[in-house]
Amino acid sequence: MEIQMQYYLLLGVVMFFAGVYGFITRRNLIAVLISVELNLNAVDINFAVFNRYLYPGELEGMFFTIFAIAIAAAETAVAIAIIINVYRNLSNIEVRNLDQLQEPTETTEPEEKA
């Protein structure tokens, strides 16, 4: 019995939202990166599935998948490099410590004119 398209899509949705959940809740940068990979892979599955079921005989979806995998690999390399640098600077890779780009938080009162 051929597996119906909906199951594949269901798997994609579950993977995608698992990735979103992980991206939002994980504290470790590596885990966040893994979550992003989950998102990407969920999308890859969708591409492959739509190509396979809706346009049999065509290959565009497959190619998109292959490109996405290649790009994800490159992106992971970059992300790992960033994470290593973060570790060098902060000695940890907690996401919530990465807020150095925002303004300092002390409040300043409006200047009183003399």
């Binding site: 979103v20 939002i24 996401v95 919530r96 990465l98 807020d99 925002q102 409006p110």
Partner: peptide
């Protein structure tokens, strides 16, 4: 001075959105 004061207060009130926490941004985006 009142205008400046009001602007600053408003800025203080909404600056919480720019926390620098990537995950928070992601939640809002999603």
């Amino acid at each position: 001075n009142g205008m400046a004061f009001l602007t600053q207060r408003a800025a203080l009130a909404i600056r919480g959105f720019q926390s620098g926490q990537v995950q928070q941004y992601a939640v809002v985006l999603l």
